[in-house]
């Protein structure tokens, strides 16, 4: 058996070369893998859409009910070029987006304020927690009907529904985040001279921030659901109405096309929220699993 001993003082000359070679190979493998992932993703897309198109054209599924990608694309093109029955497409998107954003902002601000207030005050928390639990167990979409009656067909009813959808998610997370704040950090701040208000602003809110931001990701989607469902229930404009009209005229391509428009809006909002989060929690160490795609 052959053994290799490293003699002290005689630094192996090849070591830096070996390391850079290793590095080069590793980076090459990483690039290859990245390309493979992208290629596979494209393949999945092509197979799914192609299979759908093919199945519809060969008559395996009925395009009247399930439409097909080429019809959906044509529908989107028609909407963007000629406009929809209610007006230009961008206007429908703008209306839904406005309702969603307003509902999201109002709901999350209320949720954060209530969450922190209840999290910092044991008595308030004990008194109100039961009612919040009850309110949370009601399927909130049902409230949409109430809001349409109360606020009419305009923007108000959709915003109200979006607010209700968002509020409970953000509230629950803000409350939990405040409760999870490290008690040593709080004690440290107190001894360093922080007043109760300073403990809240300098310790409790920053440490609840990761919880709150996590809930904002989910809740923008909820706000969108609230706005669209509100539009279903009764409105004069918006993507929800577009879907509702398409459904009424048995236009499956219209339903799918509106869905895709919604997905684009949601993805864009997700992107904005992620960049906001990166700015706000730049103090956080990279999480395990970050950096992957």
């Amino acid at each position: 058996m052959e053994t290799t001993a490293i003699k002290p003082g005689a630094a192996p000359r090849g070591v830096p070369d070996q390391l850079s070679e290793l590095e080069r190979l590793a980076q090459q493998r990483l690039r290859q893998r990245h390309r493979l992932v992208i290629a596979l993703r494209l393949a999945v897309l092509v197979v799914t859409l192609g299979g759908w198109e093919l199945a519809a054209r060969l008559g395996w599924i009925d395009p009247f009910f399930f439409s097909m990608p080429s019809q959906i694309l044509a529908q989107i093109v028609t909407w963007s070029v000629e406009g929809t029955a209610q007006g230009p497409l961008w206007q429908q998107v703008a209306v839904t987006l406005e309702e969603t954003t307003l509902g999201f902002l109002i709901g999350s601000v209320l949720g954060v304020i209530c969450g922190i207030a209840l999290g910092r005050n044991k008595l308030l928390a004990d008194v109100f927690s039961i009612y919040i639990k009850i309110a949370n167990s009601v399927p909130r979409v049902v409230l949409g009907s109430v809001f349409v009656i109360a606020f009419g067909l305009g923007m108000g009813s959709k915003v109200a529904l979006a607010v209700v959808m968002v509020f409970f998610v953000v509230f629950a997370n803000a409350f939990q985040g405040v409760r999870e704040a490290d008690r040593y950090l709080i004690a440290n701040a107190q001894i360093l001279g922080a007043s109760r208000r300073q403990v809240t602003t300098a310790v409790v809110i920053p440490s609840a921030m990761s919880w709150i931001l996590a809930s904002l990701h989910v809740s923008f989607g909820f706000a969108l659901v609230g706005a669209v469902v509100g539009e279903f229930l009764g409105s004069r404009q918006g993507i929800g109405l577009l879907i509702s009209v398409a459904q009424g005229s048995f236009n499956a391509a219209g339903v799918f096309a509106a869905m895709i428009v919604l997905a684009v809006v949601a993805l864009f909002a997700e992107f904005l929220l992620t960049s906001l989060e990166k700015r706000l929690v730049k103090w956080r160490p990279p999480q395990f699993g970050d950096g992957g795609h």
């Binding site: 040593y184 004690a187 310790v203 929690v281 103090w283 956080r284």
Partner: peptide, 9 residues
């Protein structure tokens, strides 16, 4: 403190 009580943010 025993634990890390510096503010991570």
């Amino acid at each position: 403190f025993q634990s890390d009580a510096v503010f991570p943010w």
